[in-house]
Design a protein around this nucleic acid. Structure first.
Lengths: 196, 196
DNA sequence: AAAAAATTGTAATGATTAGTACAAAATTAG
DNA sequence: CTAATTTTGTACTAATCATTACAATTTTTT
């Protein structure tokens, strides 16, 4: 039994995806609600009726980005095959993602944290959770690699995970701010050669 | 022979420093001109008479930050003593800087690039120059270390410089966005232990 | 002493913005 | 069919903001 009243003329997922794209390209403050209406195809009435506020829509877009992103990254780390190949695949995925669209810049969640973590506790919480989850997955993958002998036990897995993580975020921030894909590729190569 | 007319009641450097502090704490968009007047002590008339626009003041503040920052970093890399100690000192300096004031978050120039490089060619240019200068100084220091035997020649100096650089920016971005000083210290330690 | 030059504080301006009000439209329930 | 319910588009509101206008003030120049 569906709800009474006039039915919505849009798909929730499509609206959130469209909003996500716009927030990705412009950040939170630089997106006006009018821009959001244009991009999503909704009128103001529909947008506010459905989401209540620009901020609420932003949070939903960020949450979706986080969920699909962390899932993709963890899947890559849990693939079959040599651990080093998986770590390489993760770096390649990040570069692909960060340069996937010339209007986007880098990773939406990093951009959001840089713009808003200071002022927006929900953004801060989400970013920290994302980083923690990625760090855990990295450490686990590296530990597995050490047990199987694929990765040297010279260094603690937690140190290697820390190191990979800061490398990974440095890479992605430079992708967003300096937009130098060639350097990104060199950095990824150097990371793998030196660390493992 | 000084200029005629009523003399200014402020020191240019003090105003730029005050503005820099505010931009550091809040970013560009989130600083209103009224905030800037309060923080610098100038009235609107004086501020616009002296600097022309908020944007012009921002650029001057960023330029000063860049100049003092790149100088400090290069000085650390050119210190006396073992190269590894200098690299450690650079990481320690960054952590110190990023947590120097609880209202500041991370590095002003990185924050600026993340907020504005997309829209503001001057910011993009300045950030790229800063990164390039730091990368050059790193590579040179590492090459010197390899010649003196302090650093293994297993890897190319350019690879090690790339790696250190992405580590460094990852560290600083996480300092800004996640504000976890303990992890920053661990990351710095891991960087030195694994890379050199 | 008067004119010229520069700075200062205040009040106003025009643009932009997130959010609201509300009536028209489209659907379901009875 | 009628009432109830929900969505939709449009016009409006109230706040914020960067910038400008301008008169009063303080200095130098002649």
């Amino acid at each position: 039994m569906s709800k009474s009243g006039r039915p919505r003329e849009f798909k929730d997922t499509a609206v959130i995806d469209a909003a996500m794209e716009l927030f990705w390209e412009n950040g939170y403050e630089a997106c006006s609600t009018e821009d959001l209406c244009k991009q999503t195809g909704l009128g103001r009435g529909s947008l506010y009726n459905a989401y209540g506020s620009k901020h609420e829509l932003y949070q939903q877009a960020l949450l979706r980005y986080h969920e699909t992103g962390i899932q993709a990254q963890i899947e890559i780390l849990n693939q079959q095959g040599p651990i080093k190949d998986r770590l390489r695949a993760l770096l390649d995925w990040a570069i692909q993602e960060d340069f996937s669209n010339e209007n986007r810049r880098g990773c939406l969640l990093i951009n959001a944290a840089m713009e808003r973590a200071q002022r927006d506790p929900a953004v801060e919480r989400l970013f920290k959770r994302h980083v923690d989850l990625l760090e855990q997955a990295l450490q686990q993958a590296i530990e597995t690699g050490q047990l199987s002998g694929e990765i040297s036990r010279t260094h603690q897995a937690s140190d290697l995970a820390h190191l990979f993580l800061s490398n990974y975020y440095g890479l992605r921030v430079l992708n967003a701010a300096a937009q130098n894909r060639e350097r990104a590729v060199q950095m990824a190569k150097a990371t793998l050669e030196v660390l493992f």
